[in-house]
Amino acid sequence: MIKFLNPSYVFKLSGKLLSLFKAVLLPIVVVGLIFSLFLSPKDYIQGDTVRIMYIHVPSAWISLLSFAAISFFCILNFLFKLKNVTLIYKSLAPIGLTFNIIAIVTGSIWGQPTWGTWWAWDARLTSMLILMFFYIAFIFSYKFINNSDRSIKACTLISVLGLINLVIIKYSVEWWSTLHQPSSISLTRETTVHFSMLIPLGLMLLALIMYVAVIFLMKYRIETIRIKRKGIRKL
């Protein structure tokens, strides 16, 4: 376990994992796309538009989970000042922002044929938009605040405030009357999505997780090399 705190071990491991994930990414994406675009059935009410779910839902999950992970690592870094942890959240934030934007845009495209509008100031949509601003503020605070201590404090504050927004996003469809439907997949309740639709959803989730892993590992290596370059310049 202790070796995972060793930057050189983690860097070497990241190289090996990167090659592995790159090799499996394309086949999973192709299978996932075939299932979600051609093999999965139409919805009896929404018709073919339901296929948007296969990218919209995993993207939203990834953006929420990324922010939760960022908050966890920020608090960890604030308390214990671990250098590796800084690299993790700096690598995760742009990925989370990207999937947040994908979730908003694909949701908007799905909204037009389903609700008859591209956008509504409904609680779920608005709180997802607010999450995007939290991501932007977070990225700005580690990019533009040069003082390391102040940057860590700002990042921690934004991530903790963002955590409150995550709770609002999760329960927005229950607390308020929204255009957005309540969640069909839950860990605590019975899932209301048919098995034939769960397969492409699972495949696309796996494909996007593999993609996230590839980008995350590349970004992790970028941040590590940046630190190493600073070391060289000091020589």
Partner: peptide
């Protein structure tokens, strides 16, 4: 064509693909 919904489905998948491709190429 997907019963007229193709434009919504393909634009969603297309947008996602392009954004992911852009992020991948830029990061690499």
């Amino acid at each position: 064509l997907m019963d007229g919904y193709g434009v919504y489905v393909w634009s969603s998948f297309g947008f996602t693909f392009l954004v992911c491709l852009f992020l991948y190429i830029r990061t690499k």
